[in-house]
Design a binder for these strands. Structure first.
Lengths: 99, 99
DNA sequence: TTGTAATATCGTAATATCAATAACCAAGGA
DNA sequence: TCCTTGGTTATTGATATTACGATATTACAA
């Protein structure tokens, strides 16, 4: 792999890292790695205020990590790209393996 | 996996993410994933000023991502934990596979 | 003394965090 | 229709953290 390509990949991937690099945002991503969830499900799963949850989901959507599907009153969020799901899953494999 | 354990893992892992979440720091980690390198080797490999390189290496060492071995004038940096090497490698596998 | 390797500090600009609060909108009574 | 509620989004402001160039410093070898 040449250096130029490597650098452009690093720009792209570090932006994803940055969007995930927060305890609660990572937690959200871990839950979403298991499949689509709506906002109140996420609110129950994570200890987080509604306002922050909304901000975090919004931010990760803006940065193309998440996509939304609206159904009546509910917004269902899911991971936008299967590479990101893979990333979360390998992080779980590496850091959360049972001892 | 219970929620409490999951949360504490997320705190730990998101701190690692945060330390890596920068184009040039990620680039450094990718080079270091191949093995120990000294500072001038890294300076040649990455387009980065000496002052920033020093700051970045220092920061990632402080946050336990890197370790240093000094040999005369040279400081050799390497990744401090094999889980972090694994993480970098799986990121490379996911995002840098050749098409 | 000059060059190489590395570290430390400073100041400014840019970002991020987070709580509080307001706004929006659709559905369901009264 | 008006009013309320539930679910969600947007805005603001105070505070903290980062980024990064400039500059100074330490250490040692040729």
């Amino acid at each position: 792999m040449n250096l130029e390509l490597m650098q452009s990949k690093c720009v792209e991937v570090s932006a994803i890292m940055k969007a995930i690099a927060h305890p609660q945002r990572l937690m959200l991503m871990c839950h979403l790695a298991e499949g689509e969830k709506n906002v109140s499900e996420l609110l129950d799963l994570c200890e987080i205020s509604q306002s922050q949850l909304s901000q975090f989901l919004n931010r990760m959507q803006r940065e193309k990590l998440l996509k939304v599907r609206r159904d009546g009153n509910f917004s269902y969020y899911s991971i936008a790209d299967k590479n990101i799901t893979k990333l979360i899953q390998s992080m779980q494999k590496i850091f959360c393996k049972e001892e």
